[in-house]
Design a binder for these strands. Structure first.
Length: 220
DNA sequence: CACCAGGCAAGTA
DNA sequence: TACTTGCATGGT
């Protein structure tokens, strides 16, 4: 079986088992980016609390964000953890938007995707996964986000090594699939949902995982 | 109690 | 270059 077919079969299986994900859960592209920064190494439930606090305070827009001090932001996002570091990272990101995108994240969607990616990666606090999350889920650009779940799931299916680096993992999957924003959007969302549900680090739940039948090494 | 969560940057050798 | 550590809350 071709690798491309295998990856598409994995995708279809997850989609049929779990249904569409409707990612990213947010009211605006700016909120997507804020969520992408806040969810670094952090459970989404805690991030949602921080997002709600920011929303209730009126801080969730590029224009209003600057009205809040570092300390106020820290208090609002505290439930998301690493709150001092993340408050600083959010401030740096909004400053980046003001300098490079006239204070509106949507202006980045006119950029060449690789230019936008390189620009985001230069912002302190934005690494590959956060940059790609912003590109795909806030700006609707065709790029596949990969993460720890992706490496874990595909290594357990015999396709990559557990500690594969980000860009190798991304290329292995993304390069053999149709370059389609909706496909990449849904693919990552489904992988995270499967990871959350069945592929924890020490999971004993694998017998009910939707992907259980598809071990690459056993397919012909 | 231990372990985990939709990473990243900075320091060390 | 290749490891290691700090960051921090909240759920299981």
């Amino acid at each position: 079986m071709e690798r491309a077919q295998f990856f598409l079969r994995i995708f279809k299986t997850m989609l049929e088992a779990l249904g569409p994900s409707g990612w990213w859960p947010a009211d605006s592209p700016f909120e997507v980016a804020v969520g992408a920064l806040l969810t670094q190494n952090t459970n989404w439930k805690n991030v949602a609390k921080a997002i709600n606090a920011l929303k209730n305070a009126g801080a969730l827009s590029e224009q209003n964000f600057d009205q809040f001090s570092q300390e106020e932001l820290e208090d609002l996002i505290r439930p998301a953890g690493y709150y001092k570091q993340k408050a600083q990272r959010l401030r740096i990101f909004v400053e980046f938007l003001r300098l490079r995108a006239d204070g509106d994240i949507l202006n980045l969607s006119h950029w060449d995707i690789q230019d936008a990616r390189r620009a985001l990666l230069r912002v302190k606090g934005i690494g590959p996964e956060t940059a790609d999350s912003i590109l795909c889920y806030a700006l609707d650009m065709p790029i596949l986000v990969v993460d720890a779940y992706t490496a874990r799931i595909f290594s357990r299916h015999g396709l990559v090594s557990e500690d594969v680096d980000y860009h190798s993992l991304q290329s292995e999957i993304m390069d053999v699939l149709p370059q389609d924003v909706s496909l990449f959007n849904e693919y990552h969302a489904l992988l995270v949902r499967v990871g959350n549900g069945w592929c924890k680090r020490k999971a004993g739940l694998c017998e009910t995982c939707p992907l259980q039948p598809f071990l690459y090494s056993e397919m012909s």
